[in-house]
Structures are given as C-alpha cells and as structure tokens.
Design a protein around this nucleic acid. Structure first.
Lengths: 340, 340
DNA sequence: AGAGTCTTCCAAAGCGCTTTGGCTTTTTTG
DNA sequence: CAAAAAAGCCAAAGCGCTTTGGAAGACTCT
C-alpha cells in the first residue's frame, strides 16, 4: 500500500493525502479525518526510503563507533545505550552505529554527513580540542557532546556531569577526615573527564595547602587489573597514600583486591572513594566494604542526550547551550579518619 | 556531485556511468577506467538514499534492542559489538539499533522488514521456541541467531558455543576431583544458553550416578549481587555444595565475596568454575584466587556473525546451517579436591 | 554482400515520497 | 455587489539512483 494507491482509493490527489497525513494546514479538517482514517485502516506507512530521498530526513541518530582489534568499547556504553534507547523508542528514532577505524573517524563522520545518513549525531568521550567536535560543528549536522572538550574556539551543545566538582567534594571529605596524602587512580587523561577529576582533587588539596604528588596520580584504562597494579605501586612505595580516589567501580575492584593482598584494610589503612556510573550488575554497596562513591547515572545521561538530539532535529532546541549535572557524593563504609 | 553531473562531464549517459561503477559487464573496459577515474577524482559517492529507493539495499544490518526502564542491556553486548563492529567496518556495513518495548518486539521487527530498513538482522539471547526467530523466518529477511532456540519446527542459521559441552566438562572435572555436591549458579533459565549449561552439569553428574539437587541450582540475572546471594544461600543451608559452577564472571565476583564473608576459602572449602566471555576489563586470572573458567570470546562471535550476515546479504551463504563452537576449559587455582 | 551476433551505449521509466506553483471555489470586505 | 482574500485541492516536477528495452555500430559467417 503506497501513497498512490491510497490517494486513488480516496479519489484524492497524492498531494492532498500527503499533506493531510503530515499535518499541513491547507487541507480541510473533514478531508484530513477521512484520510487519516483510511490510512490507519489500511495500515499505510510511508516508505522511509522514499521519504528520505525527498526530504533528507532519516529518523535516525548516529554514533561513530571506534573499532579495531586493540580497541575496547567502554562497558559504560551499554548503560548509556539503555537510556538512549529508552527515549529513542518513544520517539520512533533509531540509532545507527557506524564503525570506524579508531585512528580515522573523520572519514566516517564526513561520510555519514555527506550521505545524509542520520539527522543528528552525538559524540562521547571527548578530549581537549577534540577534532571530532570541531569537524561535526563545521559540517553543520545537529549534535550533542556527551561530556566536554576544552580549548575549542567556539561553543557547542553538551551534557556533562560535574566531574571536577565531584572529585573536589570527594577529596575535600578525605582531607577533612585528616588525610594528607591522597592518590588518584584515574582514567585515560587524554580524555577531558579525567582531566577535570584530577583538577578537582588538586583544587581541594591546594585549599588546604596540600598537593597531589607526582607519583600519586596515575591514568590508565579503567580495568580491574589496572586498578590493582596502580594500587600495589602506590602502597608499596614510600610515602604511600592513606586515601585513594578512583575513577571507576571496575578499577575499584582491583584496588580492593590489592589492598587485601597487601594485608591492609579499608578503611583502616586506606580510605577509598570511587566514581559510580550506576551499573545494575555491580553496586558499590555490595563491595566487601561498602564503597563511598560519587554517583551519577550514565543511563539518565543517555536518555537526556537522546531527548536533546530529538529536540534539535525538530528545531525545538538551538544554540550551544551546555549543561552540567551535579554529582552526588554518597558516603559509605570505605572512608574513615586517617590512620595515626 | 551526483550521477547526472558526472555523466554529463564524461559525455556519457547515466546508465553507462552507473553500470561502469557497479561492475556490470556491458561496458568497455576503457570506458570503465575513465569513469572510475573521474569518479574518484571528483570524490563521487552515490547517494545511499537514492540507491536504497531504487534497489532496496541499505548496507545496514539491524538489531532490535529491547528497552524499558526495568530492562538492563547485558554488559556482554558491548564486547559482542566490538567484534561485530570491527568486521562491519571492513565491509562498509553500518549497524542500526532499533529500540523496542521489551514486551513487544514483534512490531519493531515487522516495521524494519516492511520498511526495508536493513538488509539483515541478528537475534541474540534466544529462548526455547523463540517467537522472534519464527517471525523473522517467515518475514523472509536474512538473519543469524547468536545462540540457539529449541523446539522450533524449522531449521535456521545460528552461531552458538557449546554451552552444554563446556559445563559438562567443568562438572566432570569437579566430580573427578571428588566433589559430590555441585551447585550451579546460572543465568536466566528462560534463555537457551542457561538451559544448555544446566543440561551439561546434570549429564556429568548422572554419569557418576549423582544429581543436581533442586536447591543446588538457581537462575538469576547475572549481577554481582545475585551471585553473592545465591552463594550465601547455598552455603548456609545444610547439604552445602563443595563446588560451584557459575555462568558469568560478574556473578563470580559475588560468589567470591560470599565465600569470604562466610569465613570459607576457595578452593579449600569450595571449588569454583565460571564461564568467561573474555572481557578486557575483568579477567579470571586476576581474581584473588585465579579462577578456573570455561572460556569463549564473545567478541569473536560478534565478528563471526557480522561475517555471516555479510555473506548472506551478498548471497554467498544460504541455507540453515548452524555452527557450534567448542569452549576451552582453563584450569586455574580455584579448583581443588573435595574437602574430606 | 547480406544476415546474424556481439559489443557498447542510451533514453526513459521507475522507486514512493514531498513540494512548488496554480487553479477553482468559497468567503470576506468596503 | 464587485473585488479581494482565503480555503481547498491538483498536476507535475523533483530527489538521485537502477534497470529495462532498444538501437547503432562493429564483427563474424556463409
């Protein structure tokens, strides 16, 4: 059942039927009702390929997925996707993942824009002066950045959490508890979120005349193993920290294991605060010692970004407004006063 | 730059240019070279929307993503995606995720097929007599199932791992080590993979005249917390098992925590074998006691499924061939002889 | 040399929708 | 009541590609 047939059986022109269906004003309400009715009864659905060709609208949002044998997709992605998908569903949007060589995403961005394959894109895990953001901005396709870049000479729309604030609060709490030597086990510091977190910790320390020692900060891929290694290194050297801030629950698993392997305890010997993106399958309250966390649901972020993308596509949202969400600091058993 | 312009500047018809580009035989090799050359030089890329409308081919593979506030996407998904994406990239395929109400995926499958939105789809986490498989089969779109259904009255193409064999081997090893009371902490037993794993354990036990006690098997969502709870329950009741087989590394985290909380040890009091899908961020050898596992890379499965989908799209693969991959049993420190 | 066969190319007809420009008919207005 | 404005509808021209059905020219064969 296509438009032509439908129009024919209604004894109307395709024009009128099309307009009736798409809510244009120049059609009699009575006629519109007839058309709508017939369309529903015959289960008429406009062919998206044809519509695409005519309008350029696709009803899809895009994401360029970096891939490669040595590239690991962040497990957070799946939670983000849950939120994004949940919202997208209610608005009949699909998501297209365009896999790209991690070292050459530009080609893919250009392709999906040139081919009008999607109505909007989002960018995640931005870095300072992120080229993708600059590219997408000049290409002129609607977009939202999940997170923030830095040092770009233009504004852009983003949704981010207050990473600096979160880690500032976490560090401040630890300092108030008497800790003087803090350590930060961070994610890849080429990404802005990690930079912001480090900044937050440093700021809190500085406010008390303290510093984050060169050897007390490390930036690694957020795996359990890296959390373990970093912690071993930190605690086995001289000048060991009495408190650790950690950028992910997964790394925190490794931290806990390392502390235990060394015959130390949390929070007796070491206090620990980790960032929690809120996974259903790994919860901080279920750690052997319930983990204090800076908490922010990445799922909610996914839903919000879908919402903003939809708004931009339909022209409801414009401009370069960035939004920053506050982060909860949830205190549980893994923090205590500094050991004497 | 579109076909018309390109044809005009080559003083050829659109037909010829199109055919030259698409490798049809009825065009002079000399002419083809000229065309190919000009196309490359001017960066001509056929408009996919137009091509879609004309041919029905989309260059995309589809996946219906169950969503909903209470629906959690499996964290395995992201690893699967890595493999899928890596292969898809090399074949210029995109992946479109169509979010659907978890309780009504049928509508979405029908939509993407009726609208010709993708060239092929894959189905994951199949259940016995899975309706999605039956639906997709009748709709006539190329597809591959990741995993297996059961009790369908037709054959279909799938790629699965030998879950039954894997857990059979694991249980057999435990039995040989003298264990008599095994327990299975399984995933959702409405899914075929879980059924197969249970079957494998039962078969191994039966071979030695043993049984899997009613209370020694549990099926839950594969979270850390559920692993913990199941283990507490198993070990605190009478008739506690001396060995546990566990369907995921994430649950195994909970198992280990529970054992420790009870003042017991692995493998002294309890032996443990878990299934490992091979995550980069959580590795069995890094558990406090290195974990024995049945191992099978879900990433490889993703790549394989992309490969088969591509083959089916281009007509290279046909029929309903199912393939079952063997699973490695990797023995590490978490298993030992049964306590006296 | 005329008939038959390839080879190489083209004009034009879709694919199914949106949208421009215009034509009637009805309603409003001074 | 005539002129102007508004309402309601339509024919046809795209959107950019593929593919059908020829046609012209070059070659082979008897």
């Amino acid at each position: 059942m296509n438009l032509k047939q439908l129009a024919h059986m209604l004894a109307l022109s395709q024009t009128t039927v099309s307009r009736a269906l798409n809510g244009y004003p120049e059609v009699n309400e009575e006629t519109r009702r007839r058309v709508m009715d017939a369309a529903k009864r015959h289960g008429y659905r406009p062919n998206p390929s044809a519509r695409r060709l005519a309008t350029g609208k696709t009803g899809m949002i895009g994401y360029v997925l970096p891939t490669g044998a040595s590239v690991d997709i962040d497990p957070h992605f799946v939670e983000f996707l849950s939120g994004l998908g949940d919202y997208a569903r209610s608005h009949e949007l699909d998501l297209v993942l365009s896999p790209a060589d991690a070292d050459d995403q530009e080609t893919t961005y250009r392709r999906i824009v040139a081919n009008r394959q999607v109505d909007a894109v989002y960018i995640s895990s931005p870095r300072p002066a992120d080229r993708r953001v600059a590219l997408v901005n000049t290409l002129g396709i609607p977009f939202i950045v999940h997170g923030r870049s830095e040092g770009l000479d233009f504004d852009y729309p983003f949704t981010d959490i207050d990473n600096e604030g979160a880690f500032h609060e976490a560090a401040r709490l630890l300092i108030q508890l008497g800790h003087r030597r803090l350590a930060l086990i961070n994610g890849d510091d080429r990404e802005t979120f990690a930079i912001h977190r480090e900044r937050g910790v440093r700021r809190a320390l500085a406010a008390s005349g303290l510093e984050l020692g060169e050897r007390h900060v490390c930036s690694v891929a957020m795996t359990e193993e890296n959390g373990y290694r970093a912690t071993r290194r930190l605690l086995e050297e001289g000048d060991a920290p009495t408190a650790i801030a950690c950028s992910s629950l997964i790394m925190a698993l490794g931290v806990v294991r390392a502390v235990r392997d060394l015959g130390l305890t949390i929070p007796g010997d070491v206090s620990l605060i980790a960032h929690d993106d809120v996974f259903p399958w790994l919860r901080p309250e279920n750690f052997s010692v319930p983990l204090s966390t800076t908490r922010s649901s990445i799922r909610l972020a996914g839903a919000r970004i879908a919402e903003r993308l939809a708004a931009r596509i339909s022209g409801l949202e414009e401009g370069a407004r960035g939004e920053v969400w506050p982060v909860d600091l949830v205190v549980r058993g893994s923090v205590a006063g500094a050991p004497a």
